[in-house]
Design a protein around this nucleic acid. Structure first.
Length: 816
RNA sequence: GCCCGGAUGGCGGAAUAGGUAGACGCAACGGACUUAAAAUCCGUUGGCCGCAAGGCCGUGCCGGUUCGACUCCGGCUCUGGGCACCA
C-alpha cells in the first residue's frame, strides 16, 4: 500500500531525528580525519534569497558527502551582522539597527532550519556581539603595538547637503542617493592596516594553492600588482622639491612630453592661489566620487599649471599640468606622461595639443604611425640618444643603472595593492578601540578595558553617527595620562569581521582568548564556498588576517582556505538577483509549495556550481515530479517485501545490464561529487538510473535483488542533495539504522566496463558508421570491421586509403 | 577604462585528456487513462532534403592548427563579476 509523497511531513520527521540525535554537533575527535566545510556567512538582510539557498545547498552537499566518506565534518553557520543596510532600515522604519538585525537573524535561521542544512548550531557566531568583536578590537591594539596599523589622510565621498560620508554604492552618477547633490572628494584622517607588509607573501603563496581556481588566483595576482620599475625625480624650476614619479617603462623616458599632478597636489594648490581660473578648475576636479571605475571612465580633463619640469636626461623643459585622472592617494600624486607609448597619455595629449614623440619602434623593423595610435608593446629604442637600438631589458637596465650610479633615482618594487583603510564614519559597526588625548595622541584601549561596547539603544537619524552625540561614549579619561580625552567614534569596515570569523567557529565560547587549541584542530578550512564577487577583497583580507593571527602566535596556519569553490550568481532576467533591482524570487514560497528537497534538488540540477544560474520558474516542477517518481518507485518495490538476500550469481542479460548500470552510476556520481563538483550531472545520472529501474520489469528474486541494489544506491547518492526524502526511503527499503550514518557506496570495478563497445567510424573527418566489437579488440580487427561497414565502403574505395587512426574502444578515422 | 569569467536546440544544460554534439530535465506536440480537468503513463522533438537508406548544414562572429575542434591558437562581438566605503 503506497503512501503518497508529502514533503512537509517527511522533512519534519527527518529534521526532528537529526535534532534529537544531535547529528551535526561535533567536538574535536582524535584519530578521525577532520573536514571543515564552510560557506561565506550571510548578511542578515531579512529573508533568505536564492543566492543563499544556492551556496548553502552546494556546501551542504559537500559536507554530507564528506561525512559519508567517513570524515569528521564541521559545518557551522553565523552572521555577518554589521553593515550599511541596517542603518538604512533604521532610517526608513525608525527601529534601532540592532533590533532590525536580530529580528532578521531569527527569521533567516528558521528558514535555514527548514532547508535541513547539516549545521552545528552550537557554534553560531554573530559579529555584532561584543563577545565576538572584542577580539577584533584586541587584535587591532596588538597590531597598533607592532606598527601594523597607522593613521593617515584619505579620500571619502562627501555629500555637501546631507553633510555625511557616502559609500560608493550611495553615489549614483556622481550624486548623493538621498540628497541628489554633486558628491565631492574630501580628505579625512583614517586608520589603515598594513596589508602591503604582506604583499610578497600573499602573492608568492598563490603559486602553492592548487585548491583555488586559477581565475581567482590570477585576479589576486593582478590586484596585488607587483611591478619592478624606476623611481626618479624631475626638477621644477622655482620649486625646492623635485617631482618624484615611478615608472615601469624607463625605456620610454625620452618620450616624456608633459607631466601631470593631482588636484590636491601641493604644486597645484600653490599655483591655484594666484590663478583664479586654475582654482576653479581644481574645485571642479574634486566634484567627483572616489570610485576607481568612475575616475577611469570619466572625461579626462586637465589644465596647464604654467610651470614646467626639467627632463632628467635631456634637460628639456616639459609642461606641468593638473589632471582629474591623477589621484593624490595613488603613488606620489604625480605622473610622467609618455603619450607615444601609453594609451591614456596619448588620448590626453591629443585632446590638449601636447606633442607625441615615438621612442620605441617595433622590433621587426616595421613602421608604426604614432599619430594614429600609441605603440604599447616592447620594442627597440629610437630617438633616445645613446640608448637607441636597445631592446626593453637592455634599455631598462642601462637607464636604471645610470640613475642609480648618479644617485638620482633607484630601482623600486611597487605594488598596485594599497593599505587597507578600515575606518568607517558609521554607527553600526565595531568601535575602533582608540582614545584621542591632547597630550598622548592616539592611544589604544588597554586590554582590561575591552571590549569597547557599541551602545545598541540609539535614536538613529542618518545624519552622522549617533555615537558623536553620546557624551557617555565619547568622553573618557586617557588610559596613559588620565586626563580627559575623546573616544574614536568611527567603526571598522565590516570586512574586518569577516576576515577571521572562520577561525572563531572553532571556539566561539572562549572568553579568555581569541583562538585556542580547538582552532588548531579545525583550521584551515578544507572547503570554502562563496560567491565569485568575493574573489578579491574578502578573500585577500582573510588571507592577510590569517597571517596577522599567525604572527601574533594565535595560529600556525598561513592560508585560511585550502579549497575554494566560487559559485556563480543567481541571475534573473540576466542580472544578479537583488533587492535593489527588485528581481528576486522568494525561496520560502517554493519551499511551502514543494518542500525543501525539491528546492535543493532544483538548485543543484539547474547548472554547475561555478556557472551563473539564470533563474526560471519552470523546472522546479520537474524536480518535484522526479522526487515523486523516486518516492513511488521505492514504495512500489518495498510493497512486495524485502528480496531474499541469497541467490545464485547467475543473471539474465537484463539483470546484468541493470547491475552494470548501477555500478557505472556509482562510479560516475562519486567522481561528479567528490572530484568535479558537477552536481547537475550527478543528478542527471541518478535520474537515468531510476529511469532504468522503472523500465526494468522482473519480479523474480534475482531481479528484485538487483532492483534493491539500484534503489539503495540512488537513495545513498542522492542523500547529500535531498537528505529528507532519502532518510525516509532508506527505512522504507527495510533498514533499521538511520541513513545519516551510512557510508558512500562503492562501485565494483569488475562491473564498470561494457563487454561490447560501439566504435564510431569517420572517413575524412565525417561520421560514416558505427560498428560494435568486443571491448579491447586489437586495432587491425577493429579497422577491418570498420571497413566492412557498407556505408563506410561507399566513401572508401580500395587502395585509396592514405592514413588510418584507431582510438581504442572509441573511434576509427580513415583518410582517403 | 583596467582585471577575471561566459556564449551549445524553443529554454536550463551534457559532451571529464582534441575523438559519435545535444545526456538529463523543462517547454511544446501527439496518444492512453478520465464524464471532464488535474495528476500520472507512453511516444515525438536542432534545421533542411529524402518514401527509406541516407545526405547536407549546425556549438556567438572571422580566420588558423589537426585525420578530426564546443574543446587548442590569433582577432572581434555581446554579456556577467570585480575595481578598494554594498556585502
Amino acid at each position: 500500500m503506497s503512501i503518497p509523497y508529502h514533503p512537509e511531513a517527511v522533512e519534519k520527521k527527518a529534521q526532528q531525528f537529526w535534532d534529537e540525535a544531535h547529528c551535526f554537533e561535533v567536538a574535536e575527535t582524535d584519530g578521525k580525519e577532520k573536514f571543515y566545510c564552510l560557506t561565506m556567512f550571510p548578511y542578515p538582510s531579512g529573508k533568505l534569497h536564492m543566492g543563499h539557498v544556492r551556496v548553502f545547498t552546494i556546501n551542504d552537499v559537500i559536507a554530507r558527502y564528506q561525512r559519508m566518506q567517513g570524515k569528521h565534518v564541521l559545518q557551522p553557520m553565523g552572521w555577518d551582522a554589521f553593515g550599511l543596510p541596517a542603518e538604512n532600515a533604521a532610517i526608513k522604519r525608525g527601529i534601532p539597527p540592532a533590533q532590525w538585525t536580530y529580528r532578521n537573524i531569527d527569521e533567516m535561521r528558521i528558514q535555514m532550519r527548514r532547508l535541513g542544512y547539516a549545521y552545528d548550531w552550537t557554534r553560531e557566531v554573530m559579529t555584532c556581539r561584543p563577545e565576538y568583536y572584542r577580539w577584533e578590537q584586541w587584535l587591532f591594539t596588538k597590531m597598533f603595538e607592532k606598527g601594523l596599523v597607522y593613521r593617515k589622510n584619505s579620500i571619502v565621498n562627501w555629500d555637501p547637503v546631507d553633510q555625511t560620508v557616502l559609500a560608493n554604492e550611495q553615489v549614483i552618477d556622481g550624486r548623493g542617493w538621498r540628497s541628489d547633490a554633486l558628491v565631492e572628494r574630501r580628505e579625512i584622517p583614517q586608520w589603515f592596516m598594513k596589508i602591503t607588509a604582506y604583499a610578497d607573501e600573499l602573492l608568492d603563496e598563490l603559486d602553492r594553492m592548487p585548491g583555488w581556481p586559477e581565475s581567482v588566483k590570477t585576479m589576486q595576482r593582478n590586484w596585488i600588482g607587483r611591478s619592478v620599475g624606476l623611481e626618479l625625480s624631475f626638477a621644477v624650476p622655482g620649486e625646492r622639491e623635485p617631482l618624484t614619479v615611478y615608472t615601469t617603462r624607463p625605456d620610454t623616458l625620452f618620450g616624456v612630453t608633459y607631466m601631470a599632478v593631482a588636484a590636491e597636489h601641493p604644486l597645484a594648490v600653490k599655483a591655484a592661489a594666484t590663478n583664479a581660473k586654475l582654482a576653479a578648475f581644481i574645485e571642479e576636479c574634486k566634484k567627483s566620487g572616489a570610485a576607481e571605475a568612475r575616475l577611469e571612465t570619466m572625461e579626462k580633463r586637465g589644465m596647464s599649471l604654467g610651470l614646467s619640469a626639467i627632463h632628467p636626461l635631456t634637460g628639456v623643459e616639459v609642461p606641468l599640468w593638473v589632471a582629474n585622472f591623477v589621484l593624490m592617494s595613488y603613488g606620489t600624486g604625480a605622473i610622467m606622461a609618455v603619450p607615444g607609448h601609453d594609451a591614456r597619455d596619448w588620448e590626453f595629449a591629443r585632446k590638449h595639443g601636447l606633442p607625441i614623440v615615438q621612442v620605441v619602434a617595433p622590433a621587426d623593423g616595421s613602421d608604426f604611425d604614432i599619430e594614429a595610435a600609441p605603440f604599447l608593446e616592447h620594442g627597440v629604442l629610437v630617438n633616445s640618444a645613446d640608448y637607441d637600438g636597445m631592446d626593453f631589458d637592455a634599455a631598462f637596465n642601462a637607464i636604471a643603472d645610470y640613475f642609480e650610479n648618479a644617485n638620482r633615482g633607484k630601482r623600486t618594487i611597487n605594488y598596485r595593492l594599497r593599505d587597507w583603510g578600515v575606518s568607517r564614519q558609521r554607527y553600526w559597526g565595531t568601535p575602533i578601540p582608540i582614545i584621542y588625548c591632547d597630550d598622548c595622541d592616539a592611544v589604544p584601549v588597554p586590554e582590561d578595558q575591552l571590549p569597547v561596547v557599541l551602545p545598541e539603544d540609539v535614536a538613529f537619524t542618518g545624519h552622522g553617527s549617533p555615537l558623536k552625540d553620546m557624551p557617555e561614549f565619547v568622553n573618557v579619561d586617557c588610559p596613559q595620562c588620565g586626563e580627559p580625552a575623546r573616544r574614536e567614534t568611527d567603526t571598522f569596515d565590516t570586512f574586518v569581521e569577516s576576515s577571521w570569523y572562520f577561525a572563531r567557529y572553532a571556539c566561539p565560547d572562549n572568553d579568555k582568548r581569541m583562538l585556542d587549541e580547538r582552532a588548531d584542530y579545525w583550521t584551515p578550512v578544507d572547503q570554502y564556498t562563496g560567491g565569485i564577487e568575493h574573489a578579491i577583497l574578502h578573500l585577500l583580507y582573510s588571507r592577510f588576517f590569517q597571517r596577522v593571527m599567525r604572527d601574533q602566535g594565535l595560529s600556525n596556519v598561513s592560508e585560511p582556505f585550502t579549497n575554494l569553490l566560487t559559485q556563480g550568481m543567481v541571475l534573473k532576467d540576466g542580472a544578479k538577483m537583488s533587492k535593489n533591482k527588485g528581481n528576486t524570487v522568494d525561496p520560502q514560497e517554493l519551499i511551502e509549495k514543494y518542500g525543501a528537497d525539491t528546492v535543493r534538488l532544483f538548485m543543484m540540477f539547474a547548472a554547475p556550481p561555478e556557472q551563473a544560474l539564470e533563474w526560471s520558474d519552470d523546472g522546479v516542477q520537474g524536480s518535484f515530479r522526479f522526487l515523486k517518481r523516486f518516492w513511488v518507485a521505492v514504495q512500489k518495490h518495498a510493497d512486495a517485501g524485502r528480496p531474499e538476500t541469497s541467490s545464485a550469481d547467475v543473471f539474465t542479460p537484463d539483470q546484468e545490464a541493470l547491475l552494470r548500470k548501477t555500478h557505472q552510476t556509482i562510479a560516475k556520481i562519486s567522481d561528479d561529487i567528490g572530484r568535479r563538483y558537477t552536481f547537475n550531472t550527478a543528478v542527471a545520472a541518478s535520474m537515468e538510473l531510476l529511469n532504468a529501474v522503472n523500465r526494468f520489469d522482473d519480479p523474480s528474486a534475482t531481479g528484485r535483488r538487483v532492483v534493491q541494489q539500484a534503489l539503495e544506491a540512488v537513495v545513498l547518492m542522492l542523500s547529500p542533495m535531498v537528505p529528507h526524502i532519502c532518510h525516509e526511503l532508506w527505512s522504507v527499503l527495510g533498514h533499521e539504522t538511520a541513513l545519516i550514518d551510512e557510508s558512500w557506496p562503492a562501485a565494483d570495478a569488475r562491473l564498470l566496463h561494457a563487454d561490447i563497445v560501439k566504435i564510431a567510424v569517420q572517413v575524412n573527418g565525417k561520421m560514416r558508421g558505427m560498428v560494435s566489437v568486443p571491448a579491447d579488440t586489437d586495432d587491425d580487427t577493429v579497422l577491418a570491421a570498420a571497413l566492412s561497414d557498407p556505408n563506410v565502403q561507399r566513401f572508401v574505395s580500395a587502395g585509396s586509403i592514405r592514413k588510418t587512426i584507431v582510438v581504442p574502444n572509441k573511434l576509427v578515422s580513415i583518410v582517403v
